[in-house]
Computed example of a mutant assay.
Amino acid sequence: MASIRVRQAHDGDRAALAALHEREWGGPVVVVHDTRYDLRDLPTFVAIDDSGTFAGALAYRVDADGLEVVSLAASAPGAGAGTALLAAAEEAATAAAADRIWLVTTNDNLGALRFYQRRGLRIVAVDAGAVDRARAVKPTIPRVGADGIPLHDELRLARHLTGADQR
């Protein structure tokens, strides 16, 4: 596995971020929990492998609910970029005095569910029909997702950083 270095994104990362967001989300706009985000407006970490190649990115926001991972994508899944980016987000949450890290994924995203649960996040809520509502804002969201699974619902995952229960 390659060594991964994580840092805050800077202007020189714009092209790589744009390409990643286009591949993963059809552009820089994501709609999650009935909120529209432009990933270009959020603080972002980038992962760089030991050869200096862009390996992934994590966009986030911090508020009273904790640090929300709005977008996490790796250029080559399984190479360690996602794990390194999530660790950087946890450090940022701690530095911001946030007591938890949380995110939303979709019902079809079995790989993400496996990834996050293996890193201690737990499913804390299901919003049935949230993706259907998001399609009204972003009609390019597909109706069928990964593995041919109909795409309808959002699953919220969270992990408290203080060791408290995840309610």
Rank of each mutant, 00 (worst) to 15 (best):
A2F: 15
I4M: 07
R5K: 10
Q8S: 15
Q8H: 13
H10P: 08
D13Q: 07
D13F: 03
R14D: 08
R14E: 13
L17Y: 04
A19C: 09
H21E: 14
G26P: 03
P28D: 12
P28A: 11
V29M: 07
V32A: 06
H33R: 15
H33Y: 13
D34F: 12
L42T: 06
A47L: 05
S51L: 14
A57D: 01
V62W: 07
D63N: 15
D63H: 14
D65A: 12
L67T: 13
V70P: 04
A73T: 03
A74E: 08
P77A: 02
G78I: 01
G78T: 01
G82M: 05
A87W: 08
E90I: 05
E91Q: 08
A96P: 15
A97M: 15
A98V: 00
D99Y: 12
D99A: 09
R100E: 02
I101Q: 00
T105H: 04
N107R: 08
N109W: 04
N109V: 06
L110Y: 07
R114E: 15
Q117W: 11
R119Q: 13
R119C: 13
R119A: 08
L121W: 01
I123W: 09
A125C: 12
A125N: 11
V126A: 11
D132I: 11
D132H: 15
A136R: 10
P139S: 05
P142Q: 08
G148Q: 10
L151D: 10
H152W: 14
L155W: 06
L157R: 04
A158Y: 02
L161S: 01
L161T: 00
T162Y: 03
G163H: 05
A164H: 02
D165V: 14
D165W: 12
Q166K: 13
R167D: 13
